[in-house]
């Protein structure tokens, strides 16, 4: 056998003689050390409970698992709690961040476009919630004929007449996201059509129509319900909404005028 000790019998027999005798423990030292050990043990029995390697390891694993679960539930809980947040809420940035993460994790252009459409719809819903929260002042409450009373002309869309700066900002954001989502959806639709996947293309077309209708209902992208006619395809699936200058956002001068009305100040 390789590296065998069998051929070293003489050396093995000589080993006890090679170790100096002075290294042995004297009986006095041995007794003294024994006494110290027994004293230490007696003290330890009172003060310390021995913990084994695996017990320590189990405790460590349990501690890490509990910490990880706590962190996970905190993150998941915050993300869940933020799902109903609207602009101005404390958790709204969390909601936006969660959406960004979801978008970055999207595996294909199609799923990304669908997600963008979903988030754009979210923005529209947020706009509705914001509008519902804003008290409508009596000065511009619509009269019996449906026209607002006061300084605002009857041609001004009602949604614009009571906008707070927060709403204006939310409207700009919603506009942008609806635009982006429609662009992405149209691009995906064109790709699907070129691939001959008409079934999926139809689904995307339905999604586009749905989003356009919802945006139109909130006077986004052109201010009317029929704004799908305002989009033009410029050759290679380019999508550019033709904005109506009057209705897209509230002009600062208009906003100032509105805020000067009694009961319309954002604070």
């Amino acid at each position: 056998m390789i590296f065998s000790a069998k051929k070293f019998k003489k050396e093995v027999q000589a080993l006890p003689k090679l170790i100096p005798a002075a290294d042995a423990l004297t009986s006095q030292d041995q007794a003294r050390i024994k006494q110290n050990i027994l004293l230490a043990i007696a003290r330890q029995d009172v003060t310390e409970t021995p913990v084994g390697f695996w017990t320590r390891r189990r405790q460590l694993i349990l501690r890490y698992t509990v910490s990880a679960a706590a962190v996970f539930s905190l993150v998941a809980g915050t993300a869940f709690a933020s799902s109903n947040a609207i602009p101005g809420d404390l958790l709204y940035p969390v909601k936006i961040t969660t959406e960004k993460v979801q978008l970055s994790l999207a595996s294909s252009d199609q799923s990304k476009a669908v997600l963008e459409a979903q988030f754009a719809r979210q923005r529209i819903v947020e706009l509705q919630k914001l509008a519902a929260q804003t008290p409508v002042p009596t000065a511009i409450m619509p009269n019996a004929s449906g026209n607002p009373v006061g300084l605002i002309s009857s041609s001004t869309p009602p949604a614009l007449t009571i906008q707070t700066p927060l709403e204006t900002q939310a409207r700009i954001q919603a506009n942008m996201e609806v635009n982006d989502a429609l662009t992405a959806l149209k691009s995906v639709q064109a790709k699907l059509q070129s691939r001959g996947d008409n079934k999926d293309a139809q689904i995307i077309a339905g999604s586009i129509l749905n989003l356009q209708n919802q945006a139109g209902a909130q006077h986004l992208l052109g201010g009317s319900n029929n704004n799908q006619n305002n989009y033009k395809d410029h050759g290679q699936n380019q999508y550019k909404p033709t904005r109506s200058p009057a209705a897209t956002t509230t002009r600062p001068s208009q906003l100032r005028k509105l805020n000067d009305l009694p009961g319309l100040r954002p604070d």
Partner: peptide, 13 residues
């Protein structure tokens, strides 16, 4: 001394 104290601590497990 340390070795035997450690051994005693390790005995329960």
């Amino acid at each position: 001394q340390d070795i035997f104290i450690k051994a005693y601590k390790g005995l329960p497990v």
